[in-house]
Simulated scan of single mutants.
Amino acid sequence: MFAVRTTGRLAWGSRRWIQLRGVSTLEGNSHIYVFPDEGASGSHILSLLPTEPANAALAIGITSKLPPTTDSLRENPKFLEILQEVFSKYAHEDPEAQSQAQVMVSTAGANLYSGGVLTGHNRRKNKRRADMGDSSGGASGQGGAGSAGRGGWIHISDSRRPPDFGRIAWPEDIFGSLEVDSEGHFVGGDGNYQSSGTYRTVTRDGILGLSPFLRAKLVQRLKELDQQ
């Protein structure tokens, strides 16, 4: 289902969703806007931009279902290219990535959550891991807990499924990685960002989830391109 950010009067409602005259957004993802796809009946364009008509060339993708699923969403390769361009330029400036870099080289150990990003304590249990076995690597695989003084790589990951303590995110949730030296500084000043090549926009755990900083930078870039 999807929620609607209202700019008008109530037209119809129920416990699960409401239809209002306004800008539609995905339920639980108020930053992702939903527009009807004029070229395909029953399909919807998903975008980080609220402007209408939606610019499909800059959209996240097109889905035949709401909420989108791994089978219903047709990803927009151009959007992912823009996302990686923005991350390559700004990921090292993300306060969450900077915190993660400092934790990685700390002799006090690390509290790594949300794909290696330092956040509050995460008590979520992942049923899929329990059912399928945890294939995500330990912190040592990213230079995390126990890597004090050595440096290594930290991962910029989707926030839809924070990994358990001391683990890194699943490959489908990792956007890319940044290189950190033994003092917790980004190598080369920008961390030599490397795209993972494994990220998926939608998984069984949800759709695109970005840190506030990187989402703002991505939206800014999309707006610039939309105005060209």
Score class of each variant (00 low, 15 high):
Gly184His: 04
Thr203Gly: 09
Thr203Lys: 09
Tyr90Arg: 13
Trp153Pro: 00
Ala91Ser: 12
Asp190Gly: 06
Lys127Met: 07
Asn126Thr: 11
Val187Lys: 13
Asp131Thr: 10
Glu93Cys: 12
Asp205Gly: 01
Arg129Gly: 00
Ala97Asp: 00
Gly176Lys: 03
Ile207Thr: 04
Gln102Ser: 12
Ile207Gln: 04
Val187Met: 06
Phe165Gln: 11
Leu208Asn: 02
Gly209Thr: 07
Arg200Phe: 05
Lys89Pro: 00
Ser182Leu: 06
Gly151Leu: 05
Glu183Asn: 13
Arg124Pro: 00
Asn111Ile: 11
Ser88Ile: 00
Pro171Glu: 09
Lys89Trp: 00
Pro95Glu: 09
Arg129Asp: 12
Ile154Ser: 12
Ala91Trp: 03
Gly116Tyr: 06
Gly144Cys: 04
Arg150Gln: 10
Glu179Tyr: 05
His121Asn: 11
Asp94Glu: 08
Thr201Gly: 02
Gly209Phe: 00
Asn111Arg: 14
His92Thr: 04
Thr203Ile: 09
Met104Glu: 07
Leu178Trp: 03
Gly115Gln: 07
Trp170Val: 06
Gly115Thr: 08
Ala145Glu: 09
Thr201Ala: 14
Ile156Asp: 06
Gly141Val: 13
Ile174Asp: 04
Gly176Pro: 01
Ala145Val: 10
Lys89Tyr: 06
Gly191Tyr: 05
Ser195Cys: 08
His121Trp: 14
Phe165Cys: 01
Val187Glu: 06
Lys125Thr: 14
Tyr113Ile: 03
Ser140Tyr: 08
Ala108Glu: 15
Asp94Lys: 08
Val187Gln: 01
Ala101His: 01
Arg167Glu: 06
Glu93Asn: 11
His185Cys: 05
Gly141Gln: 09
Val105Cys: 07
Ala169Pro: 01
Ile156Cys: 09
Phe175Asp: 01
Val103Asp: 14
Pro163Leu: 04
Asp131Gln: 11
Leu208Ser: 06
Asn126Lys: 06
Ala148Asn: 08
Asp164Gly: 14
Ser136Tyr: 00
Val180Tyr: 03
Ser159Arg: 11
Gly144Met: 02
Asp158Phe: 08
Ser140Ala: 10
Trp170Phe: 13
Thr201Leu: 15
Gly149His: 10
Ala145Asn: 13
Pro95Met: 12
Asn122Cys: 12
Gly189Thr: 07
Asp164Glu: 15
Leu210Asn: 06
Glu183Arg: 15
Val202Lys: 01
Arg161Val: 08
Ser195Arg: 09
Gln142Asp: 05
Ser147Gln: 07
Leu118Cys: 10
Glu93Phe: 07
Gly141His: 06
Arg167Thr: 05
Gly209His: 03
Pro163Val: 02
Ala169Gln: 07
Asp205Val: 00
Arg123Met: 11
Leu118Lys: 13
Ser136Phe: 00
Gly188Arg: 10
Glu172Cys: 10
Ala101Ser: 10
Gly188Lys: 10
Gly184Cys: 09
Leu112Ala: 12
Leu118Val: 14
Lys125Arg: 14
His185Ser: 10
Leu112Ile: 08
Lys89Ile: 09
Ile207Asp: 00
Asp94Trp: 03
Asn111Phe: 14
Leu210Gly: 02
Lys127Ser: 10
Arg167Cys: 03
Gly146Lys: 09
Ala139Thr: 02
Ser177Lys: 04
Asn192Tyr: 08
Asp134Trp: 02
Ala97Met: 15
Asp190Ile: 01
Thr119Lys: 13
Arg150Asn: 08
His92Leu: 07
Tyr193Leu: 03
Thr201Ser: 15
His92Ser: 15
Leu210Arg: 02
Arg204Ser: 12
Val202Arg: 01
Ser136Asn: 11
Glu172Ala: 14
His155Ser: 13
Ser88Gly: 15
Arg150His: 10
